[in-house]
Design a protein around this nucleic acid. Structure first.
Lengths: 274, 274
DNA sequence: CAAATCGTATCGATATACGATACGAACGTA
DNA sequence: TACGTTCGTATCGTATATCGATACGATTTG
């Protein structure tokens, strides 16, 4: 019997917890729940970034105190947790694992020179994101003008439905899959200009399909304008996007699209076809 | 009984495996070895970044095939591993955990504007690293001139003994601790100019103690020159370093020290004392 | 000073992870 | 075509490692 309380599971993964998943896991002889529970302890810090006590972790992860005691003890010893004065925090070891991921990814490896060149020819923010269902995850950033670098950390996730990158990606997906994503997305207005109606988003995606790149003007952050083009794998499936970002103070949307769009598209094509 | 084969343990952690650790772990009722074994599966990718089969993982991690089958199955389901055509690779979930770490760290949070300003006033590479015994780990980078950005990824570790940051950090440690670090370090010549003799390194550290910052000229990479100052916690213990890097084509070591040294020191002080 | 909460330690029961084994598919070679 | 290897996957009886209730001293809080 695999004991995975609903609360803990939902807390851990925001998207992949469809209704059927739980049934699957319950009848899964190969599933090692000790490992899953240990990871739940780490995942608790997604909900509360700061230091936490064992009981707090237990509450968020949906585990009893004894389990958290043992699992945290183990993670502490292995460096995946660290002891601070106010409680436990994630440990530096997690960055080692992230490094392994980045180092092992051919896409990310190849992207370094391409993005660096892109930043040379266009002195603005350059990002690479990976497609992951309802979110896109930022994995690489080359800063443009320092005044525009609001803290974007590696591993940050943003919604697929309202980002330029997400829409560029969706423009390479079949309609049914796009609708599935949009319907499952919690489409909130992050700014007053965020497109949240499915019809509106579909027409923006259609536009992106024609242009080869997508644009988002102040939909995530006032003052920010982003253009993005999708990176495809060998089979033509979108796996990520190249983003170029600038400030509305420096650019009109039309100018930005004219200048940045083709650059993003070229770079994305260069990275495509692993 | 905690079954942790020597090979697997060593593979996983390069520094914290002192002789006593194994005895400790053997008589540790709280240690959850299933969790540890699961993490060993992930840690295998530190040795071989690319896609691996179950057997390959088993070989590197020092686990039998059945264990890897179950653990990998679990990690796969949770997103910590991904399936590629040639085998398994780390999954995007590991980047989520890294994000939690970065987001939860007050030092890293505070460093973003400071490093951005630093890059404004000094148009070269700016890094933040964290001290971790024999290595320092890079956690933040602001790129300078694109032509100088060789791929430095988040989570990369470099030796403490031969980096400017490491020596800046050691200049704030008691002599006994410095000697301990130097003696346990495998001091190799990474370039012809790498300082490897303990006496030489100690005098460089002494120099750093006087100046407030350390310098490393082509000790890691020919053509590269780095200056760094240590970031201290509230108790005055070094926790990391601010690095400024430039090219030997653009700077003489003396010029670079005169210009970059004080900037690194100021930034490091600004980040100190949490 | 009492109550709550912290981290830590102990321990018996049993659910759980273990690992040997088997099987079909895919691949490369003879 | 046939064979040998290695892959991923599935099964299962057993031993034990994990479980979770419980207890304790130290701190903190009201």
């Amino acid at each position: 019997m695999v004991v995975l309380s609903r609360g803990g599971r939902d807390a851990a993964s925001n998207e992949s917890a469809k209704a059927a998943d739980i049934d699957k896991e319950e009848s899964d002889a190969l599933f090692t729940s000790s490992l899953a529970r240990g990871l739940m302890v780490l995942e608790a810090f997604a909900q509360q970034p700061g230091p936490m006590s064992l009981s707090e972790i237990a509450g968020i992860a949906g585990l009893n105190k004894s389990a958290v005691q043992r699992l945290a003890h183990t993670l502490l010893k292995l460096g995946y947790l660290e002891r601070h004065k106010n409680g436990l925090t994630p440990g530096r070891r997690v960055l080692d694992r992230a490094y392994d991921y980045l180092k092992g990814s051919p896409l990310i490896r190849r992207s370094v020179p391409v993005l660096a060149n892109l930043r040379t020819s266009f002195n603005e923010r350059v990002d690479l994101s990976l497609f992951d269902d309802l979110t896109i995850m930022y994995v690489s950033r080359m800063h443009g003008k320092p005044e525009m670098s609001h803290a974007h950390l590696i591993g940050r996730r943003l919604p697929t439905y309202c980002t330029a990158g997400g829409r560029a990606i969706m423009s390479h997906l079949p309609e049914s899959e796009v609708l599935d994503i949009l319907e499952r997305s919690e489409r909130r207005k992050l700014t007053s200009r965020t497109a949240t109606e499915i019809a509106d988003i579909l027409s923006l995606i259609e536009r992106a399909r024609e242009d080869g790149f997508a644009m988002s003007v102040e939909e995530l952050l006032i003052g920010d304008i982003t253009v993005a083009a999708a990176v495809l794998d060998a089979k033509g499936r979108p796996v990520g996007a190249v983003h170029l970002g600038g400030g509305t103070g420096d650019w009109s949307p039309e100018e930005f699209a004219r200048r940045a769009g083709p650059l993003a598209l070229t770079a994305a094509r260069e990275l495509s076809g692993d």
